[in-house]
Design a protein around this nucleic acid. Structure first.
Lengths: 187, 187
DNA sequence: TTCATAAAGTATCGAGTCAATACCATATAT
DNA sequence: ATATATGGTATTGACTCGATACTTTATGAA
């Protein structure tokens, strides 16, 4: 059992995700990248719902992302809205139609069955290793971490709810579970 | 901790794989899909090194694959060779240049570091769950399993070496570690 | 044997991705 | 007040991908 073995399994799993994403998207006339973008937009917080952030998340240039989002908007999966403070910024909100689509998309068919056969302790351990792998890859490639406020070093738990140390704004219980583009792990 | 959580981590990991694959390939003028095809060809056995098999593995049509392989051949990463028995069939062999490229490509940077921090027992468990997830997804989506002869129900261990129950041909020790397109799990 | 059908692979076309470049509008810094 | 930086869009060219049509070779049935 070498690192390469684990690597190969993850790589194959990654292939399959893409294949399933493609066949799923085909039914709605969407490309894999469009589904990925829309998925992200259902998971990110209010600081991270811009074309720029989508580009950073998917590792694409802003020009490329701009086109992807144009298609998603034209097909009615998201709405664009100009930021009140900074008029250069556009916020992207999935429509009800968009959210329903993503709820339906669950490429990892079989994952559920596989996890049911595994004890919950082991599943937690599995998640931990995967998360640490993710962090390792992000760190190694100097990418942003894109994780939830919950685990962010800027997240300051206070007497009545959490506050973001960067913006000094209060964060709701729902919001601290969302992905943030400014996320940094402690230390 | 829900199935969706694990799912999301895997999905993100899958994203990162693709991003790293893209940036790596860019240096050599190769697209992600071309690297994936070449990777497969360095891992598959003699029954599985055809355009058809590559297409099944990557979930693409044969027309699409044909073009991908044309580029790889033109750039000197693989050689085509007509089958002796069935003249319709083409076998694809990565060149030395091609093999070297794949050896260099190790998208899961950080994986090594993450696994080093984890006990070998847990790593084995991790692999097991990942493998079972893979199997689950393949089964659920009615895809071929594309695994090594070692775990195939057609693999018949005999006194002097293994034999493939489908072709009745003997299999070398090296060969039973390679990916086969006819692979089926026992039972 | 002969003729139909199937299978493996290639070629071409149109829709779409993606990076690069240029560009516009708005913020920010000096 | 003006230069520069930043967020986003538009356009172009190389490439992917599916669909379709096509060629060559195998196989199966009359």
């Amino acid at each position: 059992m070498s690192v390469r073995d684990t690597h190969d399994i993850l790589e194959r799993l990654s292939n399959l995700f893409r294949i399933e994403m493609r066949t799923f998207g085909l039914k709605f006339g969407l490309q894999p990248v469009q589904i990925e973008a829309l998925t992200y937009l259902t998971q990110c917080n209010r600081y991270s719902d811009t074309p720029q952030a989508v580009g950073e998340y998917l590792g694409l240039t802003k020009g490329t992302v701009s086109q992807t989002l144009k298609v998603l908007e034209q097909k009615g999966f998201l709405r664009k809205q100009q930021d009140k403070q900074d008029k250069r910024v556009v916020h992207l909100a999935p429509t009800v139609k968009g959210r329903k689509l993503i709820q339906q998309s669950f490429p990892a068919k079989g994952l559920e069955a596989a996890l049911k056969l595994t004890s919950s302790v082991k599943v937690r351990e599995l998640e931990e290793v995967l998360r640490s792998t993710l962090r390792g890859m992000q760190y190694h490639n100097k990418r942003k971490t894109f994780a939830a406020c919950q685990t962010c070093r800027f997240n300051e738990p206070q007497v009545k709810g959490a506050v973001c140390g960067l913006t000094q704004e209060p964060l709701s219980v729902q919001e601290i579970q969302l992905i943030c583009r400014e996320h940094q792990y402690p230390q």
